[in-house]
Amino acid sequence: MWSGEELDLDAYLARIGYSGELAPDLRTLRALHRAHVGAIPFENLDVALGRRIPLDVKSVQAKLVGRRRGGYCYEQNSLFAAALERIGFEVAGRGARNRSRGDALTAITHALLVVTVGGEQWLADTGFGWQGPLEPVPLVDGARVDQDGWVFGVVAEAEGVHLLRSLRPEGWADLYSFAPHSVYPVDFELMNHYSSSHPLSRFVGQVVALRPGSEARRALVRTGLTSVNRDGTTEERTVGPAELIGVLAEVFGIELDAEEAAGLVRVQSAEV
């Protein structure tokens, strides 16, 4: 389903810095998930440049592994699913509605994974950016997990829908909700087309780079760079065109070629 046989697993493991044992068990799943989100940043830079976003394993691997770039949810979770499938995990896709922006009903545009280990389901999502979990979250109503001081919870809603939440100083905040039916790589392609090309997509025409972390979570959206610390304090500043490429490299670990850098500076200049 996820073309795991086409993945260069050794190259992927080297990219995320993982050298432990490999088995389709919970220990491996947790370790791989944490290593992946720690090494490969969330970014939409090809979308901002007006490029097509291919989701086949060879293309995603060439970009996120070979070129040491990042990607957004469809790329990240396609790569992670291929790696998990190759190792022997049972992996299914899900499509989610983003609920982090208030009460408005949003379309299903976020892609995540559900991994079954020992008969139990775990939410695995390496592609939700700075607000996402560091490790898998048990897909059980009322589940609550503390990941280095960042707390996530799952709530069951009507019609089998599950809601992922995070605990903030002001209380629980909704992240996204998803139904129990599976989605497939072809569905990722459809969501990817909307997110990468539709004029109402929040990824089109602007720079977005996001990164979770144990101590702090960071987001660059347009010209605004925000850091949220584990204690709840927030730092914000503006990133102008002259420092954009340096911030992408130093804060998010994104390596760009000269053509990409010049194009992104032009995009950023239009925001100032």
Rank of each mutant, 00 (worst) to 15 (best):
S59Q: 07
I53Y: 01
V161W: 10
L190Y: 12
E90D: 15
T116I: 01
V115H: 00
S201A: 12
T233G: 13
T234L: 13
G246D: 15
N229A: 14
L7G: 01
G4K: 02
V251Q: 15
Q76W: 00
V140S: 10
D231V: 09
W2P: 02
V272E: 15
G93R: 00
G132M: 05
F178K: 00
L22M: 06
G129A: 13
F203T: 03
E215D: 14
F42T: 04
P180R: 00
D257C: 11
E5G: 03
G246M: 05
E259K: 12
G253P: 00
V91G: 01
W2H: 08
V60R: 01
N192L: 07
A107S: 13
V208G: 05
D46P: 05
R94H: 09
V267N: 12
R222G: 13
V140W: 01
A270Q: 13
A111I: 01
S177V: 09
L134W: 04
A173F: 08
V272N: 12
A209P: 07
L113S: 04
L26Y: 14
S3D: 15
H198M: 07
L225I: 10
A81P: 08
A83F: 06
G20M: 00
V140Y: 00
V151E: 06
H198L: 07
V140C: 04
S197G: 15
Y72G: 04
I16G: 02
S177G: 15
H36E: 11
P199H: 11
E159I: 01
S197K: 12
G240V: 08
G17A: 07
R217V: 12
V161Y: 04
N229E: 13
G129V: 07
S269L: 13
V65K: 01
R34K: 11
A258P: 05
V57N: 01
P169T: 14
N229C: 09
V47P: 02
R101A: 14
T106S: 14
E85C: 03
I245T: 14
G71W: 03
G127H: 05
T28W: 06
Q268N: 00
P138H: 03
V47E: 02
R67H: 09
I16W: 04
Y18W: 11
T226K: 09
Q76M: 14
H181K: 05
R27C: 06
V228Y: 02
L112Q: 05
L139I: 02
M1K: 11
V65R: 02
L29M: 06
L29P: 03
Q121L: 00
V183D: 06
L210C: 11
R230M: 06
G50F: 13
L49N: 08
I254V: 15
I87L: 05
A261H: 10
A11S: 15
F152N: 01
V247R: 11
